[in-house]
């Protein structure tokens, strides 16, 4: 019940470009996830999806995160759901991006192994 729109800009850029509702789009991607799980796994999402901040459309939360690339976010989402992190598909640059993203989203338990990696 959450739609997370990621990408659509470089890591440092905020994006207010037009929203693309396509599921898979190179520049901006929509991920669907469950707010319950996100909230349970991450403090960041707990806050972001809390009633104070979240923007709701109907029954779904809409959350935009423009400075994380879809590739990275997918890994993170996988991690959130499965507790495992698959680094095989990622290039070196992506790993760094992942590290930055994990730092921003405060996945502390991800940061240390990634730094070692």
């Amino acid at each position: 019940d959450v739609i997370i729109r990621v990408g659509g800009g470089s890591n440092n850029n905020s994006s207010n470009s037009g929203k693309n509702t396509c599921n898979r789009y190179i520049r901006q991607l929509e991920f669907q996830a469950h707010s319950l799980i996100l909230r349970a796994r991450s403090e960041y999402f707990r806050t972001a999806l809390s009633s104070k901040w979240a923007r709701k459309e109907g029954e779904t939360f809409i959350f935009e995160k423009p400075n994380i690339s879809p590739t990275v976010f997918e890994v993170i989402l996988r991690y959130i759901y499965s507790g495992r992190i698959g680094l095989e598909k990622l290039g070196e640059g992506d790993i760094v991006k992942l590290l930055i993203a994990a730092d921003e989203l405060i996945f502390e338990e991800l940061i240390y192994p990634l730094q070692e990696y």
């Binding site: 806050t47 972001a48 901040w53 979240a54 935009e64 400075n67 921003e104």
Partner: peptide
């Protein structure tokens, strides 16, 4: 007036 603010954006600002 918090409702007009975007959490993600402000967070990112602070983060940066």
């Amino acid at each position: 007036n918090a409702s007009i603010l975007s959490f993600e954006e402000l967070y990112r600002n602070a983060y940066n």
